[in-house]
Design a protein around this nucleic acid. Structure first.
Lengths: 225, 225
DNA sequence: CGGATGCTTCGACTATGATCGAACTATGAA
DNA sequence: TTCATAGTTCGATCATAGTCGAAGCATCCG
């Protein structure tokens, strides 16, 4: 009778405070165990188990068994994009779950968005790649140019491996703090991994914040002026 | 204690089926009365009144009194963008509220997205404007070039009026059927209004579908090859 | 002034779903 | 094997919120 996709189901999944806390925690990009997620949400393990089953049934999460642990993560990039867009609106309405504290500036500067770099640094990186004509924009689609391919391979990223996967290599993701786009997709993920592997940046414990080391800062500015 | 925006509140507002139906109806772009929205949602007027108050308090809707009617509409472009992104995910999971019927192809071809053109036609229009270098893309921001400004003024759009408002003139909006961007913002709105004023296209009653007339089809293809 | 329409408020009912204790399964360690 | 940890399932409780009938404002029309 009605036309269009069913947004109520998704909305109700996100609408429970406990589940919303879990999803926000998973926006940090790490896979977390049921117990860890229960702690984040402030509920018992039984309740968490029930919530996680619902989120998985709704397609928001995937689950990976490892020994006696179950690791949960956001199921696709698209879930992260959707959550980020809701966060964008919530933030614009001043609906924050916390008093803006000392952690806030760090989050705005650089943070994990599911699996790639967001915040001021994320936006600057994409801008720089576009300015250098290493990424090209048509419509909403991003494409790596030949120059771009040479560039990322020079950085040590296995372009062929990215190409093989069915996931888009480049993708835009709207930043809730900057209100502009940053780079998502498998390349976005590979770049963040690179920064961390090289020791230029570190993920903060229990937070989405990314802390750049001094040399990391310098290198980043050189790579993406 | 927790960091980041409060997505649970927004989620719970969207999560109720009655409210979701109302929001989907308002994605049609028209402002609707409380009674009309109650019909769309399949509930009584009393219940609808309570839902509408909540949606307004949550910042999703605005209300305009006109005589003894109250017209409700989505409060900002950003709400439409957020809803469209949720629809995108829901559609990708195959969560539709209907059996794909005869109306479906019409919706995919051309429909209203809050206040601008979406679907195949919407995507084609943006692509064409970009190809003609009348709109320029940097990062995620769209900008009208000088050529673009001349172009829209030639079409009879009051560019100065658009410029005056605080709303962004150009803006991307992710299309749930095409999975690509189309043109939103005040220019997107002005263009759709133009098509309808000129009699090139008509809004279908009780649907988001847009039907182009024969001359409308032809003109559209000429304007945006 | 009625009388009709559009919408809100109040109050009562009801159902859904979040929560947790207790019992159970599964994996790993000693 | 026994014990400990991780997680699920079941059942009972409880609160929240969606629902509608009835009554109350507000606006327009004749």
């Amino acid at each position: 009778m009605k036309e269009g996709p069913d947004i109520a189901l998704i909305g109700s999944l996100i609408g429970d405070p406990a589940r919303a806390n879990m999803l926000t925690a998973l926006m940090g990009g790490r896979a977390l165990t049921a117990t860890e997620l229960a702690t984040h949400a402030g509920i018992t393990l039984q309740t968490a188990s029930s919530h996680l089953a619902k989120l998985e049934a709704g397609g928001l999460l995937t689950q990976r068994k490892q020994g006696r642990h179950r690791y949960y993560a956001l199921s696709e990039d698209e879930v992260g994009l959707m959550l980020e867009s809701i966060m964008g609106f919530a933030a614009s309405r001043g609906l924050t779950r916390h008093r803006p504290g000392p952690k806030d500036p760090a989050l705005r500067k650089a943070r994990v968005c599911y699996n790639h770099l967001a915040g001021d640094y994320g936006v600057r990186m994409l801008d720089s790649l576009v300015a250098a004509r290493q990424i090209e924009i048509t419509g909403d689609d991003l494409a790596l140019t030949d120059a771009g391919r040479t560039r990322v391979e020079a950085l040590g990223i296995d372009y062929a491996a990215l190409k093989k996967s069915r996931r888009p290599i480049c993708r835009t993701c709207l930043d809730w703090s900057e209100r502009r786009s940053h780079l998502a997709g498998s390349l976005g993920e590979a770049l963040l991994t690179l920064f961390i592997d090289k020791g230029w940046a570190k993920r903060e414990q229990n937070s989405r914040a990314i802390r750049f080391t001094d040399t990391g800062e310098k290198t980043f500015s050189e790579l993406f002026p």
